[in-house]
Amino acid sequence: MASGETEMEVEATSVRQIFRHLQERFPNIKSHMVDDIAVAIDGTVFQDAWLEKVTENSEVYLLPRIGGG
């Protein structure tokens, strides 16, 4: 994470809201980063999922998007 933080708690009901929080907190995050990021919600990887719901206590990980051959 931009400032070395690796874990944080945010209040959100969707992935898009998480991204908004992140961009507010770290204004330096380039917009392409948000385009190029996947999330894992409780063990399932979502490559593009702004509207994906998260619930209280969801474990959300950010990871790079995967391509393939």
Binding site: A40, D42, G43, T44, V45, E59, Y61, L62, L63, P64
Partner: peptide, 12 residues
């Protein structure tokens, strides 16, 4: 299932 990976998620 449940193993934490270094790249991010826990495995389903």
């Amino acid at each position: 299932e449940g193993t934490q990976t270094a790249y991010g998620p826990k495995f389903g």
